[in-house]
């Protein structure tokens, strides 16, 4: 066991950046940013940040279970995240009503994920990349899945954009105007499950907050309209992933850490800037 701390600049970082796995990671970064930017805005507007965090964790037993059965990790993760998000969606939009239920399901799912991981060495080896992400191991078939999801997400969001925004601003008024708020909420929660599933690839379930929600919070502080906030949060998310990858090529740091760090720094700057403006 080598316990010395080695933190040195890697002079070959340009070679690393040009390698196939890095290029695939960058493409994944683009696809993840597209979904995270759109969904993140609505997660915040709908006060569903805890739900987003929970959905990621509910996916863990699905992911470790999938490894046990020899199925793709993303598939297991996606199915459990979808089921979890729909259950949370049925609990209603009012956060106060559902937080205890959501937290309880979250804890149980996490425990179940650990239990399933213990059942095989393959699953327990996977657990760390599920928790902390492994953007450098993303495969071509995963990229195609991400792309298909992004296209679906963008089409569906374009269609439901205004009603979704309307129900996010004031559910009562939207309901009085004849919108089916519960159906819209379930569609949104399903899209959230998909976005979480693909963003987990980059930073893992534990750090997902920093990629799905933090960029949108930064954008919200600056942008003057919902649409520009969505665009800006996509850009911030993209910049976070790219700078994170660059940093992890130069120094021996996990990409997840570098990505989350960039996202957090940007958030801190936006908070300081908007506070000082007031």
């Amino acid at each position: 066991m080598n316990s010395t701390v080695a933190f040195t600049f890697d002079p070959n970082w340009q070679v690393i950046l040009g390698s196939t796995f890095m290029v695939r990671a960058m493409i994944a970064g683009v696809l993840i940013s597209l979904s995270a930017g759109v969904i993140g805005y609505f997660v915040i507007a709908r006060k569903s940040t805890f739900a987003a965090h929970a959905v990621a964790h509910i996916g863990i037993p699905g992911a470790t279970g999938a490894v046990l059965l020899g199925l793709p990790v993303s598939l297991g993760m996606g199915v459990f995240a979808l089921a979890g998000s729909l259950v949370i969606g049925i609990l209603g939009k009012k956060a106060s009503k559902r937080e205890v239920a959501t937290g309880t399901i979250l804890a149980f799912a996490l425990g179940l994920g650990l239990m399933l991981a213990r059942l095989s060495t393959a699953a327990s080896q996977q657990l760390q990349s599920i928790l902390f992400g492994s953007i450098l191991t993303v495969t071509n078939s995963q990229l195609i899945t991400f792309l298909i999801f992004d296209v679906l997400l963008l089409i569906i969001t374009a269609v439901i954009y205004r009603p979704l925004l309307f129900t996010s601003v004031d559910e009562q008024v939207a309901q009085a105007k004849g919108l089916h708020t519960q159906a819209l909420n379930l569609v949104f929660m399903a899209l959230l499950a998909g976005s979480v599933t693909i963003a987990v690839q980059a930073v893992g379930t534990l750090l997902i907050f920093a990629l799905l929600i933090t960029p949108s919070a930064s954008a919200n502080a600056i942008a003057r309209s919902p649409r520009s906030a969505i665009l800006l949060s996509t850009v911030i998310c993209f910049v976070s992933i790219m700078l994170g990858l660059l940093f992890s090529a130069m120094f021996p740091t996990p990409p997840s850490f570098a990505i989350v760090t960039v996202s957090t720094i940007i958030w801190c700057v936006t908070q300081v800037v908007t506070r000082s403006k007031r």
Partner: peptide, 29 residues
């Protein structure tokens, strides 16, 4: 319909005029 506490716990960056725009097209897909 004007509720008692319109958007009282808002977390969106929406402005007054953008909110009024929702009265026009908010329920249209």
């Amino acid at each position: 319909y004007v509720p008692q506490d319109y958007a009282s716990d808002i977390d969106s960056n929406i402005t007054a005029e953008q909110s009024v725009e929702l009265g026009l097209y908010g329920s249209r897909f």
